[in-house]
């Protein structure tokens, strides 16, 4: 980028914020400072009646424990949730468990942490990943921690909606059960996104450049929103502030 007036993390937070609809009940899970800042940014701008729950925050978490949060989500009360993926594939399957064979993995990761449930029950799930590369976006994940689509006869009120990376916004096409390129962030081209994706990524006919963060989005994100997530994500906030210093 020739004019780095915002960081990749800030672009991702802003893209996430724009996906939040006013009045929704949204939650962010473990190790999710970018979604948390995006949701709180939306609440301060276009979605003032949105209710935001941040796991790991005392200030923004109303429940008596994670179990109560899962009970709430399983009853269909959660409109929007966020998950990551060590690997994400063309069909929006996510892998949070292992690289390689499950019994003899090359690398082992912390595991599902509820994604085997929340990916089904949250009405919309946005996947996020701060790396857009062939090792993340693979043709087929090594282990399906949670699937993008579900066999018939299984209750699935929710599922994948979007994928947010430092390069682009992808959307999940429910008819074809595949990810597609929706918009390309400033500083990148569609070809660069396709080259860094490890499977053939269909391009939506209305593909466009992601509008850059506005001055209002950036000032709100850097000021009050960072203050709000500092109790849950002190290291992330310190890094974000250092990046601008």
């Amino acid at each position: 980028m020739s004019d780095p007036v915002f960081t990749p993390d800030e672009m991702m937070s802003v893209v996430i914020a724009r996906q939040v609809r006013d009045g929704e009940t949204v939650a962010t899970g473990a190790n999710s400072p970018i979604p948390a800042s995006g949701c709180l940014l939306a609440q301060r701008l276009h979605a003032p009646s949105t209710r935001v729950m941040v796991l790991g925050s005392r200030r923004h978490f109303p429940f008596h424990g994670d179990k109560e949060f899962f009970d709430f989500a399983q009853r269909g009360k959660l409109d929007l949730f966020f998950l990551g993926g060590i690997q994400i594939d063309a069909r929006a399957n996510i892998n949070l468990h292992v690289l390689g064979d499950y019994a003899h993995p090359a690398r082992r990761f912390p595991g599902a942490f509820g994604s085997g449930v929340l990916y089904y029950v949250a009405k919309r799930v946005i996947l996020f990943r701060t790396e857009h590369s062939h090792r993340v976006f693979v043709p087929r994940v090594d282990f399906v921690t949670s699937p993008g689509v579900t066999p018939p006869g299984v209750a699935r009120p929710g599922g994948p909606s979007k994928v947010v990376t430092p390069l682009a916004l992808l959307s999940f096409n429910r008819d074809t059960a595949t990810l597609e390129l929706e918009s390309v962030h400033p500083g990148y081209t569609a070809d660069e996104v396709l080259e860094n994706t490890g499977f053939p990524l269909p391009v939506r006919p209305d593909v466009h450049q992601t509008p850059p963060p506005t001055a209002e989005e950036l000032s709100t994100l850097r000021g009050p929103v960072l203050d709000e997530i500092a109790d849950a994500y002190p290291d992330f906030v310190a890094r974000a502030r250092a990046a601008r210093a």
Binding site: A112, Y119, V121, S146, P147, P151, V154
Partner: peptide, 22 residues
């Protein structure tokens, strides 16, 4: 599953999971 243990019942029905390699 912990709630089932707390309630003294033998198993819990869990939403989701079907379709996962788990």
């Amino acid at each position: 599953a912990l709630q089932a243990g707390a309630s003294g019942v033998p198993f819990a029905a869990v939403p989701g999971l079907i379709g996962s390699d788990l």
